[in-house]
Design a protein around this nucleic acid. Structure first.
Length: 476
RNA sequence: GUCCCCGUCGUCUAGGGGUCUAGGACAUCGGGUUUUCAUCCCGGUAACAGGGGUUCGAAUCCCCUCGGGGAUGCCA
């Protein structure tokens, strides 16, 4: 069994494509199959080397290890379509000579007009160049007339295939839009054409791709048939949608795998989420590490309907994967984000850093969450956010601030951790929420956060005093 | 327009004629723990797109409508 992922290097790795890559990978792993990467860079205008590199990097980061690709040629290369022109040219000649394809010299306007006419009459579009003889075509071409090469679609022929996800799908050849371009006027071959050739030549046995390719499948089958090439099995994955049920795009949130990486999502969480999207396990278990995911995966379990991408659930999953790491390792993972927040981790004692992270870790769902939390410990003073500010203006909060301002001078470096809160409690007319919430707000600058008793030792007496004094000055 | 695909809680899904007063997860709400918030534990709200059939019986089969998506000459 051989599967492939064929990205087009015209941008970053999109989360929807990543899903396709992941599903292919699960299948490959499950069946011990070869996993081929093929770069579909036939769009010369938009394809870039940088984007090929970034896509490949993102795939690696996700944990996908291909067995064949641009960097690993096992005799089926080249693995970039831009390097396979000779191969395609040969097939194109073959198709033209056999009459399965023809050169079309019509202008865009002419074709548009003909198409509209056919559409209006509800008849299949037949290209006006499709009957030209080879000699005639040669003559026109020799005259220097611009042409495209088109595949001659047979009339009224049933095209059926058994899609592994969608079931049996049938098209009528008269209904797929008529003769279609396989080579552009600039000589560049078109996706729908060479995908058939490459899949066959690379001996791909199972084509698993997005549903947006479903309507292209009959064209590709026709090509393979005309060329006498083998047909792969097909499976079309339902699309991933945004919250408004429209195809997932930038306005729905993050769609670039690279950004997920930057924001501190873990590759194993993304793998889990993407791999599980569209189906569920028998037990209902959802937190599945890679091996288990592979073990339980079965493409026939994937549903037929599109799925809305649930960012919250991904975060939930990510938080769960973060919990699996020991503090030491998690600290290493978090360090870049703490630095990014403007603190110099290299200047902080390691044991102190790990102690802080042990306290903060449960409040994080993604690595970058630490950026908003770490200031609780590392800042001298934390400016209260809007809600906290409002809270600190309450009468009971003001009482607590005044008391704290006294108490802070009654404790010292060594006693504050146990006595600061205790003494406030003694003097306070308030208890419960009206006691602890103001303390939290005053000390951390926010309404929620880690357990105060746990946090105190890591805040330090000096900073505590600064914060109390600041609050006293600001609010009283 | 035409062709193809799809339609169960807000979201991901289980369920393939009776065991469905429709199950699980995320989110949400409530309770408990925490002398505070969060975490954690427990519990609740919430769905078969609509209409016709077939059948003793339909979320499950068929048809229509509606809705969404995709393809339909030089994106993949």
């Amino acid at each position: 069994m051989r599967v492939r992922f064929a990205p087009s290097p015209t941008g970053y790795l999109h989360i929807g494509n990543a899903r396709t890559a992941v599903i292919n990978y699960l299948i490959a792993k499950k069946n011990n199959a070869e996993y081929i990467i093929r770069i579909e860079d036939t769009d010369r205008e938009r394809s870039t080397k940088e984007s090929e590199i970034s896509i490949l990097n993102d795939l690696k980061w996700l944990g996908i290890n291909w067995t064949e690709g641009p960097d690993i040629d096992k005799g089926h290369g080249p693995y970039r379509q831009s390097e396979r022109d000779e191969i395609y040219r040969e097939y194109t000649d073959k198709l033209i000579k056999s009459g399965s394809a023809f050169r079309c010299f019509c202008t865009r306007e002419q074709v548009e007009e003909d198409k509209n006419k056919a559409m209006a009459e509800n008849k299949p579009f037949l290209d006006r160049c499709r009957h030209r003889s080879l000699e005639e075509q040669d003559k026109l071409a020799a005259e220097g007339k611009e042409f495209t090469v088109k595949f001659k679609v047979p009339e009224n022929e049933a095209i059926t295939f058994d899609d592994k996800i969608k079931g049996t799908v049938t098209f009528n050849s008269s209904n797929i839009g008529g003769d279609f371009i396989i080579v552009r006027s600039d000589g560049g071959p078109v996706y729908n054409y060479i995908v058939s050739i490459d899949d066959a030549l690379m001996e791909v046995t199972h084509v698993i791709r997005g549903e947006d390719h479903l309507s292209n499948t009959p064209k590709q089958m026709l090509i393979a048939k005309a060329l006498g090439l083998p047909q792969p099995e097909y499976a079309h994955l339902p699309l991933i949608l945004g919250f408004d049920k429209k195809k997932l795009s930038k306005r729905h949130g993050i769609t670039s795998v690279d950004i997920y990486k930057q924001e501190g999502y873990l590759p194993e969480a993304l793998m889990n989420y993407l791999g599980l999207l569209g189906w569920s396990t028998e037990s209902g278990e959802e937190l599945l590490e890679f091996d288990k995911l592979v073990d339980l995966f079965d493409i026939t379990h994937i549903g037929k309907s599109p799925a809305v991408f649930d960012f919250q659930k991904l975060k939930w999953m990510n938080g769960n994967y973060m919990k699996k790491y020991p503090v030491e390792q998690l600290t290493d993972m978090l360090t870049p984000y703490i630095d990014e927040a403007g603190f110099s981790t290299s200047a902080i004692e390691r044991s102190r850093l790990e102690g802080i992270i042990a306290i903060l870790r449960n409040s994080c769902e993604i690595l970058s969450d630490i950026k908003n939390l770490i200031g609780i410990f590392l800042n001298d003073i934390n400016e209260p956010d809007e809600d906290t500010d409002a809270h600190l203006k309450e009468d009971y909060a003001l009482d607590i601030i005044r008391i704290a301002a006294e108490v802070i001078n009654e404790v010292n470096e060594t006693t504050y951790t146990s006595d600061f809160i205790a003494k406030i409690k003694e003097k306070s007319p308030h208890k419960g929420k009206k006691l602890f919430h103001p303390i939290r707000a005053m000390v951390t600058g926010r309404l929620s956060g880690p357990d105060l008793d746990m946090a105190m030792p890591y805040i330090g007496y000096e900073n505590l005093k600064k914060r109390v004094d600041y609050a006293h000055k600001r609010y009283c």
